[in-house]
Write a protein that binds this DNA or RNA. Structure first.
Lengths: 348, 348
DNA sequence: TTGTACGCGTTATCAT
DNA sequence: ATGATAACGCGTACAA
């Protein structure tokens, strides 16, 4: 297999390499006929510019990285696909990397940036217990999406952040359950050890709602997913609910901080002979497509995934090209009232 | 932010660049002390070799690409994650690209290979209506995983293929339903326009089973997902089932060629007042985690995803390094009898 | 409008 | 054991 280089094409066309280069990169100062001929030859011989050489010359690649941390695939898969689509539009390539729960995403990013000379980074999920100093070391712009809370003492001008107000939206869901007459509301929460993880924020929202309504928090109703489990998996939800049931505390509603957790939990309820929503109302968080198809359909909080993913990518590109400054965008989530939660049965 | 190059490090250490290179790449002929000093300096100044320059010199990058085509995320997300893990182990980087249904994955692969000088390719899903000639143009090894049938006339030595025998496994599922006493078995199928797509194979398996049992095929029970829809989405399954129900043909069992389709279909049945499995038995295909958590849990065919993904990656790396030749591995799937399908009610 | 020549950061070959 | 230097393929300043 013969892989022609720019020189080969130049020789073939009887022109200099720079002319070929001009033809490829749409430079204005080139004779249309020459360009035409070159393009034809390129087509004929299947010439494709060597990206490494280009990047070497340009000193930075036309590429970004997406670092995905924790959380369930079901939620991120869509986002990644959308981001990938935006990259394609801009003729950027996308490097994807999943980060283990115990890995430091910023360290990883730093390595990646230097190695690959990336132009920007998207952090999906994950959390932000990082020092300002460390963040400064990242020489390219980066956007956090659907991440936990960022410490206040970090300069806003250093990063972008896109997501919903997890605490507020979570509170809204619990308020809704309270509005339905529920008082004994259990929660299944998955959270990282330290910092303001997304799970932590949602738990805070739960506390907020109870406090405002004058309901005392019953620690027996707060169930943490085991640290050893995949935080947002269905299995985690399943096991957590089992633990909850074994605990013996009664509850009329169960709120899981992710749809996947809720689905797992519903299975455990079913196996315990409990019916949803007749015996227990269940609600989730995220609004994955699936939530609408299971039966009973899941009451949940829907984050505008598509919008968030698209904006995340666009914002990063705009920052790279200098069109925009760093932004901190908070989207509104939407409470989806569906079948899995209903007013508490007063006869009980 | 100062980004040191190999020259800087050399100067800093008072040695030549080649010595630094030797230190980095673990060459034997270097004085341990010199190496020690160089490594320290590298650490101190945060030097990271420029990947583009490396790749330029080496003329091929330590990278592979994964091209994902069609099918539902739920199924591939896990595989991708596992493949990514294997890449990390080998210190390869992974380029991920989603292919639109109407794009040609081999063309795309070709472009990618040349542009990025990749060492190998993994095709996830997709189909294989490609000519031998075109495949030959791909100058790097590639492995098809969970793809449709590969035309017989293409030399086996050209590619690797990993998956299950979709036709046989599909037939097994329908045999199972027949064994349960079902005779009027509907099927929801999503297939590409041309060639032996995965959906097509599963449909053939359905035909096989019916034929062997002497059951006549009722075209009114074969429901194709609209070409305009995402082939393996829940929505597609939902709409297909609605169409099926509107068609008026009676059936006691419904087999969808993907779990996601089955889940969507179940929702449609529920909305039509039909109960699963009492009124209609439902079964799927794939064995995604979710199938085990919904209620009723979904009877399905489980493909050994983890094994397949891991072997796909390992095989590719082995071929790249010359350790192995191309392989064609067919895994055994597993029929999971769960709650969504039961023996036909004889009183009806 | 076009061609020549240099440099991007690295590795490999060849001297020393 | 180490250093100088030639590639790798491309973009571009500069000359023509």
């Amino acid at each position: 297999m013969f892989e022609p280089t720019i020189k080969d094409i130049a020789r073939l066309c009887g022109v200099g390499v720079s002319t070929v280069s001009r033809a490829i990169n749409n430079h204005p100062d080139i004779n249309p006929e020459t360009k035409e001929k070159i393009l034809r030859t390129i087509e004929e011989y299947g010439y494709v510019p060597n990206n490494s050489a280009r990047n070497l010359k340009r000193s930075d690649a036309k590429a970004i990285a997406v670092l995905v941390k924790g959380m369930s695939n079901l939620f991120f898969a869509n986002m990644i696909e959308i981001i990938e689509g935006e990259c394609k539009k801009k003729h950027y390539s996308m490097e994807l990397s999943y980060i283990e729960a115990d890995e430091d995403e910023v360290d990883m990013a730093q390595r990646l940036v230097k190695e690959k000379r990336l132009r920007g980074i998207i952090f999906l999920g994950g959390m932000f217990a990082h020092s300002e100093e460390k963040l400064k070391k990242l020489s390219v712009p980066f956007v956090f999406s659907t991440a936990g809370a960022i410490p206040e003492n970090i300069s806003k001008s250093l990063y972008s952040n896109i997501g919903v107000d997890d605490r507020r939206e979570s509170r809204r869901m619990v308020d809704y359950l309270i509005g339905l007459g529920h008082r004994r509301i259990a929660i299944i929460v998955a959270e990282a050890e330290e910092g303001q993880s997304i799970g932590r924020l949602r738990l805070e929202g739960y506390y907020d709602a109870l406090r405002e309504s004058g309901i005392e928090v019953n620690p027996g109703l707060v169930c943490h997913v085991s640290q050893k489990m995949i935080p947002f998996s269905m299995e985690s939800g399943y096991l957590a609910a089992k633990k909850l049931l074994a605990g013996g505390e009664e509850f009329t509603a169960l709120y899981a901080v992710a749809d996947t957790l809720a689905i797992g939990a519903e299975r455990a309820l079913y196996e315990a002979g409990l019916s949803v929503p007749d015996d227990v109302s269940v609600s989730g968080y995220d609004g994955i497509e699936l939530a609408n198809y299971i039966t009973p359909s899941l009451t949940t909080v829907r984050q505008p995934i598509e919008k968030m993913a698209r904006e995340t990518a666009r914002l990063l590109f705009d920052i790279i090209s200098g069109k925009r400054q760093h932004q901190h965008i908070v989207y509104e989530a939407e409470l989806l009232e569906r079948e899995s939660a209903k007013a508490v049965d007063l006869r009980k």
